[in-house]
């Protein structure tokens, strides 16, 4: 048993001949916000996708909230309810309203009745500041609003951990703030969060820990100030330098 809410050990992932993750260990405490940074192709998104088994790791072990995610006997659908995920491209269901997006899993996975699911769904939309947009379809919403609906879709299920895969990368700059605002609110409510993102400003003042990945490995990790101001590895230094020049 482990005291960490996320405990991933020795994760390897091969795509054909490509060795994308080369033995990654990641432990996350409850209520912690961990930021994962690194150049594209470093394996950070793949690592995130392994944690809820959207990607099948080639080897290693993953325990989330006491559940062995890689045990074939684990009911993966049940386990995934406890792990929210937010995608770069939102992935809202375009044929449903915002409320429909949020209530689908509440009804079909959590087994709530329509009235209860809609009450919970509206409460989740309220939390992301979109209560009045409940009956809009994704096509009628801005990118920032769509991403907030996607966050509402996840938090409505009351997950124990939230995974964010580049949540603001597809957004116009003026829409990024509203999404980060919602994420900050989640953090203040005590949500455990693992965030893959290039929003360094947000990492600096919201993250508990920054993990730098390169070439399928975690190169170094530590408090944001340490990683950003005094990185100990040359590769980290080079990456931080590049990011800050932009």
């Amino acid at each position: 048993m482990t005291s960490h809410i996320v405990d991933a050990r020795a994760i390897h992932k091969h795509f054909g001949t490509l060795h994308v993750l080369k033995g990654v260990d990641l432990k996350v405490n409850e209520r912690e916000l961990v930021f994962v940074i690194g150049p594209s192709g470093s394996g950070k998104s793949t690592l995130l996708r392994c944690l809820n088994r959207l990607e099948e790791p080639s080897s290693g072990s993953i325990v989330v909230d006491g559940i062995d995610m890689l045990d074939p006997k684990t009911d993966i659908n049940h386990a995934r309810r406890r792990i929210g995920m937010v995608f770069q491209s939102f992935n809202l269901y375009p044929h449903m309203t915002a409320l429909g997006n949020v209530t689908l899993a509440l009804r079909k996975v959590a087994g709530k009745g329509r009235a209860e699911a809609e009450a919970l769904g509206r409460a989740a939309l309220e939390r992301v500041g979109l209560a009045e947009r409940a009956d809009h379809t994704p096509g009628q919403l801005s990118g920032g609003q769509q991403q907030r609906v996607a966050i509402a879709r996840s938090i409505a299920l009351e997950p124990r951990v939230m995974l964010f895969d580049e949540p603001t990368s597809a957004l116009d700059p003026e829409l990024v703030g509203s999404v980060l605002e919602v994420m900050r609110g989640l953090r203040e409510s005590g949500m455990t969060m693992i965030v893959v993102s290039h929003e360094m400003g947000f990492a600096r003042n919201a993250a508990d820990r920054v993990v730098f990945m390169d070439d399928g490995l975690i190169v170094e990790q530590g408090p944001p100030a340490a990683i950003f101001e005094t990185p100990s590895h040359e590769r980290t230094r080079a990456f931080i330098g590049q990011i800050q020049r932009h």
Partner: peptide, 23 residues
Amino acid sequence: VPGGQVEAARSTGLSRMQAMRYV
């Protein structure tokens, strides 16, 4: 239908068949 749709559905705990049927 983009693969991201199924991934989003599966990430909320929908089974393969449910994702097919509803999404």
